[in-house]
């Protein structure tokens, strides 16, 4: 219940935060929403010597469209996403995702940056971001800034491409094309649980045919899993029920679940298949202007 001792730092600017990280080295952790880190610290599964709190850096809390991208500041909270009209209207997959994360109280503080930077394959945004082909913007010492393709960001359980002295500052998502839709469907044992499995799907259509697609899966592998074959099989088709069935099977094959208290490997693959099928259908309906 009670974390070990640490020093708390509350930098006023992003640069100050990065400098702190740089100076303090591996003993320091970023405190964003705190809803992944503090529970681990209360169980003493994590005992960082320093916490660098970026939750009060209000310049990291924004949702805006710019230069062909939806740009989300790292400190946008899940409830911020849930309640954004722009998100509800143009990026329903993000609303789908944020509203199934943990519970409403957690979502009031938990940040999208933290959800991604934590590198937990059980978190929900990572798969969604894969399906959306997002770009992770990362700032480091001396004003350095780099953009990481989401496919290169997740390296293993709780392990990302983020350097020790870097801070994830923004997520960039390509703005949707003319006819596109996305959807995230999660199966959880109860509210507040991680996914047994979840499936994120995005589809773009041109002239009635699927021109591009993104399919990614939550909590069925050491990292979020992109189901590439499943994506490919949709391309060029009208995404008929038959094709959806094929893609769902391919997604199940692409998943790498391990059996645990949430279910056996076999069951989780079955769930991936079911959810992916449903998510493709819903994404298609949304692309066609439905809900």
């Amino acid at each position: 219940m009670i974390p070990g001792a640490f020093d708390y730092h509350s930098p006023k600017t992003l640069d100050e935060a990065i400098n702190l990280l740089n100076d303090l080295g591996e003993d320091a952790k970023i405190l964003a929403g705190g809803h992944s880190l503090l529970p681990m610290m209360k169980w003493r599964l994590a005992e960082p010597a320093h916490l660098v709190d970026i939750s009060r850096l209000s310049d990291l809390d924004y949702i805006k469209e710019e230069n062909g991208f939806l740009c989300l500041g790292a400190m946008v909270t899940e409830s911020g996403l849930e309640n954004s009209e722009l998100i509800a209207e143009k990026y329903p997959i993000l609303k789908d995702t944020s509203e199934v994360i943990a519970d409403p109280l957690v979502r009031n503080l938990a940040s999208i940056g933290g959800n991604i930077a934590h590198g937990d394959p059980a978190n929900d945004h990572p798969a969604t971001m894969l399906a959306l082909n997002a770009i992770v913007v990362v700032c480091g010492p001396n004003g350095s800034k780099r953009e990481i393709n989401i496919d290169e960001f997740f390296l293993g359980p709780l392990w990302t491409a983020l350097g020790e002295n870097e801070i994830l500052t923004e997520i960039k998502i390509p703005m949707p094309k003319q006819q596109s839709g996305g959807c995230y469907i999660k199966l959880e044992r109860k509210v507040g649980d991680y996914a047994i499995a979840a499936s994120a799907v995005t589809l773009d259509f041109e002239n009635g045919k699927c021109s591009s697609s993104g399919i990614a899966l939550t909590n069925v592998g050491p990292t979020p899993v992109r189901a590439k074959d499943a994506q490919d099989v949709l391309i060029g088709t009208d995404v008929s029920n038959e094709v959806i069935e094929q893609a769902s099977n391919l997604a199940a094959e692409a998943s790498q679940p391990v059996g645990d208290h949430r279910g056996s490997e076999e069951y989780k693959r079955g769930v991936v298949k079911t959810l992916t099928g449903r998510a493709i259908l819903k994404a298609k309906n949304r692309a066609m202007g439905g809900n």
Partner: peptide, 8 residues
């Protein structure tokens, strides 16, 4: 009765 038991 977990979802898996029913699914099986």
């Amino acid at each position: 009765i977990t979802p898996e038991k029913v699914w099986r």
